[in-house]
Write a protein that binds this DNA or RNA. Structure first.
Lengths: 105, 105
DNA sequence: TGCCGCTATTCTGCGTTACTATGTACCGGT
DNA sequence: ACCGGTACATAGTAACGCAGAATAGCGGCA
């Protein structure tokens, strides 16, 4: 599982952010909700740093009532474009694999 | 793309081998046929070595009319089981991503 | 006041994997 | 004797997710 997540997790997080801006801890919780129960927190934060540095998301610091300030991430235009590219690649992959799974060539 | 292939390519190759035994060069050609045009030969050979060492496939050396002897790989029982596990994980992934793509949570 | 527990973020070292690039070997045709 | 296609192999590099631990801020409780 962990190996199959490589590269995909990034798209998943971007897709989540395309619905609404969220912060790291919240994203992790949402992933767990979705069934990705064993994704390490550290993984998500590292990923967020990466996509921020690549300019796919904007960040806003928001004070929290319970804990240190939250870093709220939101998808920007570049991130949106990247996400669409991700979906194209994903479709390509699923098409090939569906074909394989259905035993045919 | 290259990152999304990680872990997936292994399943793809096992799926190909589940249809019929094949050798490295042939597998590479088949991948290219399928549209994975930029997968390096070295990648496939390295992967074949890995799955052989993990005991997922059997190997038989077969002389070739044109070139060095072929190493023909075939899926064994353990590989079959692993492939099924792979499909389960894959289904899990596609379900979540379909949901995300359809704008839902 | 001091400690615990929860929320929230960050960092380091590690293992796995695919890519690039290169090298080796064997064969048939000219 | 050479060349191109067949077939396999390996060394180095980079990306990514994981485990584990550390840090910071706040509220509640004794």
């Amino acid at each position: 599982m962990t190996e199959m997540l490589k590269g995909t997790l990034e798209g998943i997080v971007l897709a989540i952010l395309s619905l609404r801006p969220e912060y790291g801890y919240e994203i992790t919780a949402r992933l767990r909700e979705m069934g990705f129960t064993d994704i390490a927190e550290g993984t998500v934060y590292a990923l967020l740093v990466r996509i921020e540095q690549r300019g796919l998301v904007g960040v806003e610091k928001v004070p929290s009532e319970k804990g240190p300030p939250r870093k709220v991430y939101s998808l920007n235009a570049q991130g949106q474009a990247y996400l669409e590219e991700f979906w194209r690649t994903w479709s390509f992959l699923t098409e090939r694999l569906d074909q394989l799974q259905k035993g045919g060539r």
